[in-house]
Design a protein around this nucleic acid. Sequence first.
DNA 1: ATGTCTACTGATAGTAGA
Length: 259
Amino acid sequence: MRIATWNINGLRARLDYLCLWLASRAPDVVGLQELKLEADAFPHERFAELGYRAVVHSEKSWNGVAVLSREPARIIGEGLPGQEHFGARLIDVDVAGLRFATVYCPNGKSLDHADYERKLIWFDALTAYVARHWKPDQPAVLCGDFNIAPASLDSWQGGKGDGSLFHTEAERRRFGALLDTGLVDLYRQRHPDGSDFSWWDYRGGAFHRGHGLRIDTLLATARVYGRLQDVVIDRDFRKKQDGLTASDHAPVYADLSHD
DNA sequence: ATGTCTACTGATAGTAGA
């Protein structure tokens, strides 16, 4: 079974590109972030043609998350309790024998912006939600755009980025607290010394200069990690394909053996 | 360092967000 996460930066703008990727990689379950459209405008038919169903938690203009899957998903939760004012950023489902949630974590904007403190609070709420509603002994996956580079290895700047947005101790403590609920970062666990990135700024030729961050990942419980065969950050799909513009994030996928 | 992309608007160019 192949599971994946991808911040697509606008579903309307990315629909053809996303369909190319689905046909090429054939994932079974996909968490999508940054849909940037109202749920009513979600193109269910287009995905049905490719054999996928979708559950959607979204809003006009910004944010928005969805889960695509070959088997139907049952929604357990939409929105992070107490944090709904911060946008449509979480959907939590049961699908294909997994508890599967995808999140678009707040960016924070800058260290002196009010959204930075709100980002930290949002993470505290996410950790509390997982600790309260998830069981560490169940097969579960929490994936998405976390907007935190968990360690120096996850930044093109290495340790020189420490202290800046995405690289602060406060953000990294939150990411660690999330893992402490009983989750492992599948990419990092599989590639202890890997320095692959999942996001590159559109500006300044960042992709070609290797100026990226690893902020998108799949977190999972031991029940899932035990089935892990491989994790791939699909860098080719950060490039233009058939003249179509890519998202600023690459998809990340993992292959799991049968339970 | 900030060259791009997306979505919005009493739109048709400018702004905000990332």
